[in-house]
Simulated assay, not measured.
Amino acid sequence: MQGPVIPWRPGRADRDVSFCTPDGRLPDASKNHDHLRAIFNRMGFNDQEIVALSGAHALGRCHTDRSGFDGPWTFSPTVLTNDYYALLMDEKWQWKKWNGPAQLEDKKTKSLMMLPTDYALIKDKSFRKTVELYARDNDAFFKDFSEVVMKLFELGVPFTASEESRFRFKPSE
């Protein structure tokens, strides 16, 4: 997907359904900045990391049969770039008039969408600073995204001290 190298270390064990995250503990796309912080701060993520993780929305699209929302965030949903942030900043967004949950669409083409949680990233001062940085600097986005996705992947993995030193990714590799 032409994005950054994302270090990955095996360690999570598959579990049965009883170990799945209960409803209400994952982000609700219809909410605002306070909700994003409540979800991600609990997992140890700061504002900059929340914005970096949101950059994953550069990929894919929403499907009404799965989430109720509909549409892609970018014009190239199979390539990871900072387009998500650039579009969030540069496009004019309006609430979509339709028979689905509240979401935004770009005013010009009406072919892109943003979720309320995406739009919250430019309405909140702290989040917006990082959105502005990533909108103009793809390298900064890739660096931060790679680090924070690795942090997300490794949440709750009980690595031993020897595994920590043996498997830790070094930027020069």
Rank of each mutant, 00 (worst) to 15 (best):
D106L: 06
R66K: 04
A102I: 14
L59N: 09
A52S: 11
E91L: 11
A102L: 15
F75K: 05
H63R: 11
Q94I: 13
A56I: 15
S67A: 09
G68H: 08
W73T: 12
L87K: 03
H57I: 00
D106K: 01
W73L: 04
E49P: 09
F75C: 01
K97S: 09
I50H: 04
R66H: 02
C62H: 15
D106R: 01
G60R: 08
D70Q: 12
N46R: 01
D65S: 13
V51H: 03
D47R: 02
L104W: 03
E49K: 09
N82L: 00
K97M: 10
G60P: 04
N46M: 05
L53F: 09
A102S: 10
A56H: 15
D90T: 07
N99E: 07
Q103Y: 01
R61M: 06
K108W: 02
T81I: 03
D65M: 11
A102M: 14
T74A: 07
V51L: 02
S67R: 00
Q48F: 02
G68D: 09
P77F: 02
F69E: 01
E49G: 05
A52H: 07
C62L: 11
N99H: 10
L87T: 06
T64R: 14
A86R: 14
E105G: 11
A58L: 02
I50S: 01
Q94K: 12
N82D: 03
D90I: 00
H63I: 10
R61Y: 12
P72A: 08
S76T: 13
T74E: 05
L80P: 11
Y84T: 06
L80E: 13
N46G: 05
A58K: 00
C62V: 10
Q48L: 04
G68S: 10
